[in-house]
Design a protein around this nucleic acid. Sequence first.
RNA 1: GCGCUCGUAGCUCAAUUGGAUAGAGCAUCCGCCUUCUAAGCGGACGGUUGUGGGUUCGAUUCCCGCCGAGCGCACCA
Length: 661
Amino acid sequence: MSIESLLRERFSRAIGLAFGSEFAGDPMVKAGDPKFADYQCNAAMVLSRQLGRPPREVATEILRHVELADVCDPPQVAGPGFINVRISAGWLARRLAELLADSAAKARGGVARVAQSATVVVDYAGPNIAKEMHVGHLRSSILGDAIARSLAFVGHRVVRQNHVGDFGTQFGMLIRHARDLKLDTGEMPQISDLDSYYKQASARDKSDPQFAIEARQAVVALQSGDPEALRLWHWIREESNRHCREIFAQLGITLSEADQRGESFYAGRLSALVQKLSEALPFGGDGPYEGISEVFDPQRKARLDTGTLDSSCAAEVQEAMLEPEAVERVEEASEPQIVTKAFVAESHGAVCVFLPGFVDKDKKPLPLIIRKSDGAYLYATTDLAALYFRIIEEKTTPEQTAPLDQNWHADRIIYTTDARQAQHFAMVFDTIRAAHWDINPVTQLPVLLQHAPFGSILGEDGKPFKTRSGESVKLRDLLHEAVQRAEAVVEKKNPDLPVAARRLVARAVGIGAVKYADLRQDRITDYQFVWDRLLALDGNTGPYLQYAFARICSIFRKAGSLPATNAAIMLDTPQERDLARRILQFSDVVQAVLQDLKPHYLCTYLYELCGSFSAFYEHCPVLRAASAELRNSRLALCDLTAAVLKVGLHELLGMELLEEM
RNA sequence: GCGCUCGUAGCUCAAUUGGAUAGAGCAUCCGCCUUCUAAGCGGACGGUUGUGGGUUCGAUUCCCGCCGAGCGCACCA
C-alpha cells in the first residue's frame, strides 16, 4: 500500500472514532511542503465548520485517536489546524527492505496492479495517409503512447488504436489528381513522392472548382467500392503504412500492425450506422428549425412542420424593410430555435444530429453532420462508427478482435488529439450518450469517454512551428536533427566513447530529449520547441534523467554485484532519507497520472527523484562507505532508484535508458 | 458575436485540484573535482500569480466584471 493511502486510511479511521463515521469520508491527506512535513492531513479545518468547534481543537482530537506510532514520530498540529506527519526513517527503511526482497515488486518500482482490470481503448497518432508525418503528429503519438503504456502497466487491457485517415475527403483529391498523372502503380512509391502529389492535389482543389467537384465525386466512388479507386488506394496506403512504422519505431511508439484500424475499416459500417442512429434518436425534434427538412424519413414526415419558418421569415423580412426599425425587426424575425433534446434530421440535404448546447455564429442550432448532401460520409460518422465498434459490436473474426483475441466492450475510451477538436469530440460523445450507446453491454455501466486535448508546438518565435519556407516540419527531419545535435553534444562531453557507442548514445539522447520535452509539460498548454533547451544537460530534461541512470549503472559496474536482497537499509543522512521517501512515492504518482491523463506529473516526479539521487550521490559515498553494511544499504538505494527510473522513464514514458553516456 | 483554453520571477515552466512563507531550470553572481561519470552538487539574487471585485479560517486554484493571447463555431480532419 502506498504511503498516501495508508495515511488516508489511518486518519479516516481516527476521524470516525472521534466524531462518527459520517465525517470520515475524505481525510484530505496530501504530500506536504518538506519544510513542514512529509505529509499533512487538512481535515480539521473542514470538520471544524461542520462540528462548530475550533479547528486546532478538532485536530488535537483527531490526534488522540490516530494510530501512527509505527509510521512516524508523533504528528504535530500547526498553523490553523494542519496535522503534520514526518514519516520515520525506520518505517521508510522497512518498506524499502521489503521492496528489495521482493524482486517482482522491485521490478515494478513498487507499483501494484489494479484489482479490477478494465478494457481501455486509447486512440492516438492518427496520421493521414499519403502525407509524411510532421510535428503535428508528435504530441498525439508521444502522449497517447505514454498513457497507453501506463494503463497497460497497472494491468488494464489496453487496445491501442491508430485511427489512420485513409478514407476521407482528402483521398478524393488524390484519386482525381492521380488520373492526370498516369502513375505507374506497379512500382512502390516513395512517401516523399506521395507527399508532393498530395500537395499538388490540395492546391488544385483550392484553385479549380471543377477539380474540387470531381474530387468529391471520387470520394463517393471510393467509398462505394470503385475498383480503380481502390487499387490506387492500396498502392498509396501500403507505402504510407511503411512510413508510419518507420517513424514509430524510431520514436519507440508501441503501435503495431494489429493496432492499425483506419477510417477505411469502418467504411462498410457507415450507412448502417446512420440508419441505426436515426432509429435510436428522435427524428426531427420538436422544431421547426431553420433549414431542416424531413425527406430523410418519410414515415415521420408528419411530425414536422417544415418550411413555415423559412417562408414566414421571408415575409417578415419584407414587411420589416418598409419600417424604420428594419434592422431590429430582421433580427427578431430570425430568432433561433433552441434544441432541447438530441435529434436526427436532414438539413440542406445533409443528415445531421442536432444536440442541446451547440450553436453556430448566428446562434442557430449547430449540426453534427454524419452524411453529406452528396452522400459521402465524414469523420464524425467514422468516429461514431468506431465508438459503436469499440463499445457494442460483437466481434467474431480475428480481424475484428485484434489486437485482443476476445470481444472488447470497452469500459473507457481515450482520445489524444489536439485541443482544436474539443468541440467535435464533445458533440460525438453527446451523440453516443443520447443514443444510449455509451452503456457497456456486459457490465451495464456507462463507458468513460475522454478527450485528452493538448496544445500546439510553437517555434522559438512563439508562432506555430514551421520550416523557414513555411511548411510543417517533417518528423523524419526533426528526429534526424535531434540525433545529430545529440551526437555533437556527446562527442564534446565524452570524447573517449568509441564511435559505435556514441551513435547509440546520440540516438537515445536525441530522441529521448524530444519525447521528454513534450511529456514534461502540462499537455493543455502550447509549448515552445527550442533545440538548446531540449538538449540542455541540466534542468528538467531527458538527458539529465538519463545521466542519473547512467551514473547508477556505473556504480554497479564498479561494485561488481547487486546488493544482497536482504540488505538492511540505513537512512542516517538527510539525503538518504529524502531519497527513500521519494522512491516510495512512485506509485501515488502513477495513480495521479492515470487519473488526470497527465504524464507530466510523472516527469516532475522523476526529475525530483533524480535530484534527490544526485544529492545523495554527492554526499554519501557508496563504494567507499564506512562499513560493509552501509555500503550494502547504499547500493540498495541505488538499485531501487534505478528500478523506479526503469519503470518510470522507460516502461511508462517510453524513453531509452543508457548504461553509459 | 458566442464558446473553449490560457495569462505565475527577465526567459521556459511547476504548484498533488481550496492549504502554511507560490517552487524548479535557464540567465546573472558566489562556492565545490588527489574520492563511485563536474552531462554533477551547494548557495545568492529574482514575485502585488494580467486586472478589479466577490465567496471564507485560507484563493494561483472557485464565482462575476474588465484587459490581453490562442483556438473553434454546416458538409475538411
